[in-house]
């Protein structure tokens, strides 16, 4: 049995409200709150980046799995905000966990689905018997150009998954996977550019909805399942509205989506988005619950996963902080000036 043996989430403490951003640009906060169902988003402190959040999420995953990190044979970090253009994030994460040197490591990038890519590859390496344990991490300190619509949602967070094949350790069995991908230039960031650009409304129907719905249908067909079979479903969540609408298009209820739907208070954590949604589901799910995860990354593609929670899940949920608690407790709101300072958008002398 291949599946998740440990999982962990990390959400920074700082938040900025949609109103605070709207105030600066003279836009209507209500259009984001009602139209896109966004209220606030997480903001990384100046000492946080994809690597630090990945380490924290990964440590929680190791704690829940109760394994020796030296036995992790592969570790992949998916992000579009790797702190180095050249030099892996994964080496730092592996070193911090104590998983070096016998560990295969690589950084992945595929816009918002780099995290599920890391999970996909990690799980398949375990399935193939190449490694005993493998970790996939999705993390981002997402960029959105100041004044752009993305500024209201681009958020920060990380989620980490440890995969293994030892039945007694599995907390969520991996039933099946599916991938759906086309070349669709809906959102990109060129080399040396600071902020991404996007195709406006082109990012909707032709990118997000086409890939999410096609991948969800393909996944269910491959696994011979239908929407009603699932207790929980997690879609990539660039804003509040999109995943709910995708759910309706496919025949899922808001209740199935609700547990993993974090975006209204968290924002879009890009590579961390669907992986973080899944951590919130795993914090609550019980033995036998079926979970569908469909990510989306611009460019564009979607990864599908079907998991079934095992009896062991309940016993590991309390071993690390729950995602909803990180989201709702101990928040600190920053103003726009502090946000700019934290995000290094103020030009400083070296």
């Amino acid at each position: 049995m291949v599946g998740i043996i440990g999982y962990g989430a990390y959400i920074p403490r700082n938040r900025i409200k949609v109103e605070e951003i709207a105030k600066v640009w003279g836009t209507d906060a209500q259009s984001y709150k009602k139209g896109l169902m966004l209220e606030e988003k997480s903001v990384p402190a100046p000492d946080q980046d994809t690597i630090t959040m990945s380490v924290e999420a990964a440590r929680k995953a190791v704690r829940r799995a109760g394994i020796d990190p030296a036995d992790i044979g592969a570790l992949y970090v998916g992000s579009e905000s790797h702190p180095y253009a050249v030099k892996p994030s994964g080496t730092v994460v592996a070193e911090a966990l104590g998983s070096t040197p016998e560990c295969h490591t690589s950084d992945f990038e595929f816009a918002c689905k780099a995290g599920t890519e890391a999970m996909f590859v990690a799980s398949q390496l375990v399935k193939a018997g190449s490694v005993r344990y493998a970790m996939g991490v999705g993390a981002d300190t997402s960029q959105g150009a100041p004044g752009d619509a993305l500024e209201y949602s681009a958020a920060s967070g990380a989620a980490a998954y440890l995969f293994g094949a030892e039945k007694e350790k599995v907390v969520a069995e991996l039933i099946d996977t599916y991938a759906y991908m086309t070349d669709t230039p809906d959102f990109w960031r060129r080399e040396h550019m600071f902020y991404p650009r996007h195709g406006g409304r082109f990012t909707g129907e032709q990118a997000y909805f086409r890939h999410i719905t096609s991948a969800a249908k393909g996944m269910m067909a491959k696994a011979k399942m239908k929407p009603a079979d699932f207790d929980y479903v997690v879609f990539h969540q660039p804003n509040g509205k999109f995943p709910l609408r995708a759910g309706k298009m496919l025949g899922f209820t808001d209740k199935q989506i609700g547990t993993g739907w974090l975006v209204n208070k968290l924002g879009n954590t890009y590579s961390g988005a669907s992986p973080l949604g899944l951590t919130a589901v795993l914090d609550e799910a019980g033995a036998g619950d079926l979970i569908l995860v469909v990510s989306f990354g611009s460019g564009a593609g979607s990864d599908g996963f079907v998991f079934r929670a095992t009896k062991r899940l309940k016993s590991v949920q309390g071993l690390a902080e729950h995602t909803r608690d990180m989201l709702d407790r101990n928040k600190r709101y920053v103003d726009y000036g502090t946000y700019l300072k934290y995000r290094k958008m103020i030009i400083m002398n070296e």
């Binding site: 000492d47 946080q48 690597i51 630090t52 380490v55 924290e56 440590r59 702190p83 070296e350």
Partner: peptide, 9 residues
Amino acid sequence: EFRKINEVG
């Protein structure tokens, strides 16, 4: 917690 301490320029 694991954090960034500093960056060299």
